[in-house]
């Protein structure tokens, strides 16, 4: 990749230009995401909202390079993702993006620290450095004393914090959280949202996908989707964050 370092705050990190995604289901074509233009700058904390079926999951998959757009372009930190091979996409996911999923998606057979070091394994980092960085990431999310616990021995909130540590460990440019609080009680939700806010405060770009208003309230900017289109895009607390209104 041309520029491994994350762009400076204020530089465009995500640039969607007329990006759309169509799924084929037999004879029927379903437009999950209509042509969308969206820009998210480095250092922003953006919530993407919408009811189910609004296309926010599709948007998340495209943003996370888990799926490739049908039309339009998607530039991540200046690089056109549409032109990349499967192997290059895997590398982008590994180096540039940290995922936090609703289901935590931790491997039950491994202790917390080994779950956290997993992305580093795929990045080819040496064993000693991996462990060190994994423990540092766990410390960052406040679970230094739980590093040898298996996921089954941790609470939901703790598991999600392990997942956040895993997302952080590669120092990605983008933290992509897909309904990270969907399976958590209110205490754990506040816990995880606090963590994301903290991370944002230290300069990370966070994109949060949710359908809950109080969760979205943590973000500086809210993008609302409906029927595969952006219907509104506005700052959450005017003046607190740079925001830009882009409508397709």
């Amino acid at each position: 990749m041309s520029s491994p370092a994350a762009p400076a705050t204020g530089e465009p990190l995500i640039e969607l230009d007329g990006t759309s995604k169509t799924y084929r289901s037999g004879e029927i074509e379903v437009a999950a995401l209509r042509p969308t233009t969206l820009r998210i700058d480095s250092g922003e904390f953006v919530a993407i909202m919408g009811p189910s079926g609004s296309g926010k999951s599709t948007l998340m998959n495209v943003l996370g390079c888990l799926d490739v757009a049908t039309a339009g372009t998607y530039r991540l930190a200046g690089a056109d993702v549409g032109a990349l091979s499967e192997v290059e996409l895997a590398e982008i996911r590994n180096r540039r993006i940290g995922f936090v999923f609703q289901q935590f998606n931790l491997l039950a057979s491994m202790p917390a620290w080994r779950n956290v070091e997993l992305p580093l394994c795929y990045a080819g980092v040496a064993r000693a450095e991996r462990r060190e960085r994994a423990l540092a990431a766990l410390d960052r999310v406040g679970l230094a004393d739980r590093s040898d616990h298996r996921p089954g021995e941790l609470s939901g909130g703790q598991q999600q914090r392990v997942a956040v540590a895993r997302a952080l460990v590669t120092e990605p440019a983008l933290l992509l959280a897909d309904e990270p609080t969907g399976n958590l009680d209110s205490t754990a939700t506040a816990d995880v949202l606090g963590l994301l806010t903290e991370l944002h405060a230290t300069g990370r770009t966070v994109v949060l996908i949710t359908h809950e208003d109080d969760v979205a309230a943590a973000a500086g900017r809210v993008v609302r989707l409906h029927d595969g289109t952006v219907v509104s895009d506005e700052p959450n607390r005017p003046g607190a964050h740079r925001a830009r209104k882009v409508l397709s």
């Binding site: 996370g64 888990l66 895997a90 998606n105 997993l118 795929y122």
Partner: peptide
Amino acid sequence: IREIGLRKALGATPTV
């Protein structure tokens, strides 16, 4: 299948 998906999301290539 979920584990495979997760590993891929974390950067595992098809070869790996």
